[in-house]
Simulated scan of single mutants.
Amino acid sequence: MSTLDARQPAGVIHDIGYQRYTGPRLGRRHIVGALYLHGVRTAFGLGRSAKAKIFPWLIVGVVGVVAAVLTAIRAQTGTAPLSYGEFPEVLSVLIIFFCAIVAPELASRDLHSGVLPLYLARPLRRGDYAMAKLAALVSATFLLLAGPLTVIFAGAAFTVDGIGAVWDEFGDYLGGVAYAAVHALVFCVVALLVASLVRRRAVAAGAVVGAFLLTTPVVGVLAVLPSRDASQLAGLASPVTLVSGIGDWAFEPGGEVAIGPYGPVYAVVALGLVATGVLLLLARYRKVASQ
C-alpha cells in the first residue's frame, strides 16, 4: 500500500446535532397508558386518515340516531319504546361489526407489519401489550353504548315527574350501563382473540364476524330439541345468545322464560369465556414474542 493511501482517513464522523435524551424516563406504567390511549384513538380513527374514520363514525352516527329517536318518542308519548337493557341487545349486530373492524386494526396491523419486537422491548412486558389492546377495545365499545344510553337517560329525566321517578329512572339506567359493559367485555375478548390469530386485517374481520354469526345456527338446532333443558341451555353455544341470556336473567325482569332457571349458568359460562379468552390472548402474544 502506498504512503498516500496510508495517510487517508478510513472514515469521517459528522456532528449533525443529535443529543442524548436527558429527561425523565416515565417507565412501564406510562408506556401501557400511552398504548391504551393510542388504542382508543385508533378505534375511532382519531389521528388517522379520513378513510379510517368512515366506518367507526358511521356506527357511532347510527347508534346516536337510534338514541335520539328513542328519546324523542319518549318525550312525545311518555312511554319508552325500548328499555335500557334492551338497547344494547337490539344493537348487538352493530357491536359485532364495530368489533370486527376495530379488533384487526388493534391486533392484526402490528402482526402484519412485524413491529411487535419494538413494542415488546423492555420495560413493556408481553402481557402489557395484550391487555392494553384489550382494554382499549373494551373501552371503545363500551363508550359506543354508554354514550347513547346517557343521552336517553338525560332525555327521560326531563319527562318524568318527581325526584323519585328520576331516581327510579337512574337505577334502570345503571342496569343498562352494566349490561352494555357485559356486551363490551364478552364481545371484545372474542373479537381480539380471533384477530390476534390472523395477520391480514380483511381476513381477520371476516373471521371475527364468523365467530359470532356461524354459531347462531348451532343455537337454533339445540333450541328445537325435545328436551326442555337442552332448549333452555342452547344459548350457551353462541356469544350473542350467551350475553342475551344474562340480560334475560339479570337486567330484564320477566325474561327468564327462555332460559328457565339457568341464569346463573349463563353468567358462569360468560365469566369462564372471558377468563379463557384472556388467558389464550396472553398465550398468543407470548408465542408471537418468542418467534
Rank of each mutant, 00 (worst) to 15 (best):
L213D: 02
S231C: 09
F170N: 01
V182F: 06
A207F: 03
V209C: 06
G176A: 07
E169D: 14
G162P: 04
V160A: 09
L149K: 09
V221W: 05
P239G: 10
A140M: 00
A156N: 04
V203C: 13
D229H: 09
S231M: 10
R228S: 09
W167C: 15
S227E: 06
E169H: 04
G171S: 08
L192R: 02
V190T: 04
Y179I: 01
V166D: 13
G220L: 06
L214G: 11
V203I: 07
A237R: 15
A181R: 03
R199I: 07
D161K: 14
V182P: 02
L192Y: 03
V219N: 04
V198N: 09
G147V: 15
V203N: 05
S238I: 00
V219L: 04
L236F: 07
V189E: 08
G162E: 12
G175R: 12
F187Y: 13
P148T: 04
P217G: 09
A237P: 02
D229E: 08
Y179T: 02
A234H: 01
L174A: 10
A191M: 12
F212R: 04
V218K: 01
P226R: 07
F187M: 11
G171A: 14
L193G: 04
L225P: 04
L214T: 02
L214P: 07
L145C: 10
G206I: 15
L236N: 03
G210V: 10
A180F: 06
P217L: 06
G176R: 02
D168I: 10
L145V: 09
A165Y: 11
L185P: 01
I152W: 06
V182Y: 10
V186C: 07
A230Y: 15
A181V: 02
G162S: 04
T141L: 08
V240A: 14
F158L: 05
Y173R: 01
I152T: 07
V160K: 00
A140Y: 00
V190A: 14
V194E: 06
D172L: 13
A157I: 03
L185V: 11
F170H: 00
Y173T: 01
G176L: 08
G235A: 02
L174G: 00
E169R: 08
A223S: 15
F153K: 09
V151L: 14
S196I: 01
A207V: 07
Q232A: 14
V138P: 00
L222M: 11
G220S: 06
G235F: 01
R228V: 15
V138H: 00
F142T: 02
S196E: 05
A237G: 07
V190Y: 10
G220H: 13
A181K: 05
R228Y: 09
A181M: 15
A230K: 02
H183M: 12
D168Y: 09
L145D: 02
P148A: 06
V218T: 05
H183N: 07
T215Y: 11
L185I: 08
A202E: 10
T215H: 03
A184F: 03
A154L: 14
A191I: 12
L185H: 07
V240W: 03
A202Q: 15
V151I: 15
L149P: 12
A204V: 02
V194M: 08
I163W: 08
D168P: 01
P148F: 12
A223F: 15
S139D: 05
G162W: 09
Q232W: 14
F158E: 14
E169L: 15
L197P: 08
L192T: 13
L145H: 05
